[in-house]
Design a protein around this nucleic acid. Sequence first.
RNA 1: GCCGGAGUGGCUUAAUGGCAAAGCAACCGCCUUGUAAGCGGUAGAUUGCGGGUUCGAUUCCCGCCUCCGGCUCCA
Length: 664
Amino acid sequence: MSVAGSQRSVTAGSTAADLFGQDRTTLVARVNGQLRDLAHELADGDLVEPVGADSDEGLAVLRHSAAHVLAQAVQQINPKARLGIGPPIQDGFYYDFDVETPFTPEDLKALEKAMQRIINEGQTFRRRVVTEDAARLELADEPYKCELIGLKSGASQDVSSVEGAFAEVGAGELTIYDNLRRDGERVWGDLCRGPHVPTTKVLGNAYKLMRTAAAYWRGSEKNPQLQRVYGTAWPTKDELKAYLERLAEAEKRDHRKLGAELDLFSFPEEIGSGLAVFHPRGGVIRKEMEDYSRRRHEEEGYEFVYSPHITKGKLFQTSGHLDWYAESMYPPMHLDEELDVDGAVTKQGQDYYLKPMNCPFHCLIFRARGRSYRELPLRLFEFGSVYRYEKSGVVHGLTRVRGMTQDDAHIYVTAQQLQSELKALLTFVINLLKDYGLDDFYLELSTRNEEKYVGTDENWAKATEALGQAAADSGLDLVDDPGGAAFYGPKISVQARDAIGRTWQMSTIQVDFNLPERFELEYQSDDGSRQRPIMIHRALFGSVERFFAVLTEHYAGAFPPWLAPVQVIGIPVADEYNDYLFDIADRLKASRIRVEVDTSDDRFPKKIRTAQKSKVPFMLIAGEDDRSAGAVSFRYRDGSQKNGVPIAKAVAEIVEAVESRRQV
RNA sequence: GCCGGAGUGGCUUAAUGGCAAAGCAACCGCCUUGUAAGCGGUAGAUUGCGGGUUCGAUUCCCGCCUCCGGCUCCA
């Protein structure tokens, strides 16, 4: 057989553990491409490789085994708990349980202790093939497991459609994994496809239970809610520690926290859930973001339009929004109705809606007069405020709000122009995002859902091809999202990774065959015929609020100078140098730099501390040494300093940093 | 919308079935010459809102609002 690339002979009946068992970092084996337990018996001609926790697959096995240990601990403490599913996930695992009372934080502590006991026992995981009938008998007390067995015996796609369920029953034989103590006593078992780590010892103490939550059984809100316990598990304690530090870092960057600390925005309860106000400091950032975006759109041939926040319901009937999205629209205001004394309607009223999207308005602008092919591509841009009645549990900081402003544009093109427009658009999008300091992207191409779509096969094929081509030309990684498109056309979305490696869906570019149809949009072609344009929906930030949140977290509140609310703070060594700094500030202001001088009666080190905490990019410090030399001293955000810089040079350095939109 | 947790001056946190405490921030005064907190004072709270139990509720109970963590959803 072939072992880790080289040919070897082993005695009949050897297991993978015989080959790799001495290497404790090997958790499972890949045998002929399939992950197997180390106890798996090898056959002649097998291709065998070791798999450790340094691979994604090995890590997933480790975490799945941790989920089993958790489940054993839960049933040890509460034998009445019924098992749901327990798959590995990004950075950890979870297990769902049907229990009478939800878990408390104290329960988690107790569970961690019980898990540690199980781990210390060094239980082995033993795979056991069972027939469906035997499994049903053995798991008679586990209704959810039985349901999974039923799913497996039915259409196999049902199993994979239940997130995580595949890990339980898989596609091949039905198996149960038993946990055995060292003396061979079976202490616990669970329906599971496997594979598992050889013993619980492997988990060491590099795991932690993180939180509890409810989750619908099989992911449907029609099903009962189970109690989910989330945990994390790592190959080593150091990696666990590093993970917890990453979480702490993410918490420090949380835009909701920074928004309050840096006085950027707030969500006054009086206004309503998911409705933000931007304070002056946040307002500056937002204005800079928007101003720069406007400038770039202007340069790219966009025209600026404006539309109202409310409209008669008819518009959203025409567009179809009321058919599909009424549930997440604010309910209508019924206006203009008049009644006589008996309450009978004498004048028919009208329903007005807050707008959830801008596109219908832009279509009306297109339709306001006859259009010529010479006008296409017609690019209509608007910072359009939209309102969506998001369900109460989903509102989240600035990233999921009920009122937001989209940097929304609709581009009307001929079929011939679609390809080149999409390509130019994608370049524009990526470059703009880069200007804001994001530089690590990949693309996702969402294609037609065969169950639900409008438009001709030909149009879909062309648009999908055009988007795919534009994506390929960008040179970025492309992930397919088959069936993920909206019913009206295919879509590309740009995913950006931030400074700590999290990905955010940013821009979307969607081709739409539907709205031009519904609004009966037409242009006159060069041959005199009337043609229907194709429409492209695109937003670069998505929503300004959300993009603001992403940038805040990306920069951890330390915005690059061009976005920073206060770009320069002058700090005198003593009051005597206030005026000297005011003169320098005036010179900076002449170059449109946002500068303040700290004239408070705090003492010098306190002023440094205050400025440092406010994350101002440049502190300009002046004392006698500086004044007598006609100079000033820099202190940067990283704590480094540059002393005795001539004023003109200092101003030039700051202006250059702002104009180049550089981070410092 | 569902499950769980939480709401105490602007912020962070303490406490208690019997006068609600501290730090930071704010304001006032004194002080203040070199890179992350000088000193003193003043003001600021109907403990999210409404109801109930109680001699007495910030504390216990119920409803609502808001936030947090998930689930479902996200045009």
